[in-house]
Amino acid sequence: MSFWTELDTELAEFPARPLVERYERMCTERFTGYRVWFSGLDGHRLFGFLSVPAGEGPFPALLETPRHGSVNNPPHYNDRLRYVTFTMMHRGQRLADVPFAAAYPGLFTLGVTDPRTYVYRAIIADCLRGAEFLAAHPQADPARLAVSGEDPVLHTAARRPVFRAAVVNTPLLHDALHRREHGESYPLEGLDDLLRAHPERETAVRETLAVYEPAALARDIRAEVLLAAPAEGPGWNGELLAALGDRGTVYQRGEQDASDARAIDAWLSGRLGMPGMARFAS
């Protein structure tokens, strides 16, 4: 049984048991907001903001996977107008931090010397659970599901091939050992801190990150994928692009993030049959 199949099997042993509660302050005439508590691997209770457009569905639906950081904003107003949106927190983040609260810096290297203990095993399982929740929502159009976020989007799309489109905003796990050489910023600097203190662990870290390398799963992705490359520093390597083949498109970010946001929004909304919406002056 492969590493990822074993994870699926293990996750299936923990029912999601979602608790969905209408959240009045996130309700308008044009959409209804909910808070959702649900269970992931080991029964850890997770959290998400769900929003459903007013009117008769089904609607296109968007899963926003968590960023690397303590806090995720709720779904944006413009997205709530167009999509069933589910913005989730993985274990350790605010609103999902009992009994485990993530440390920053610290989370990125937690357990990284063994693929089975690496914290991203559970975090990716959390994302898979979020995908299951959204795909099962009665108002979500199964033919128009999308996922966006950092590169755990690729793991999610590979292991839950229900998505029509996937937007990857930035690399995280991809090519991490190489990308850490280009700066001193966290979370990648955490790898330097670890290997400085424990150089003998480099092989183990390398082997773990190889398991979590998105390129290793990319052939299982059915969605069209937009890979947004950072304006500076290394982006997406040839191995990943080759694995995605003609399903992958690279969008090179420039120095105008509002223009980039418009272009990415247009790409995604076009694949879901919805109009593009600029956040500025909306």
Binding site: E255, Q256, A258, S259
Partner: peptide, 13 residues
């Protein structure tokens, strides 16, 4: 001021 920039406000340049 940076036309075309959003909340990055001209970053990274």
């Amino acid at each position: 001021t940076f036309p075309g920039s959003g909340h990055d406000a001209g970053q990274p340049g």
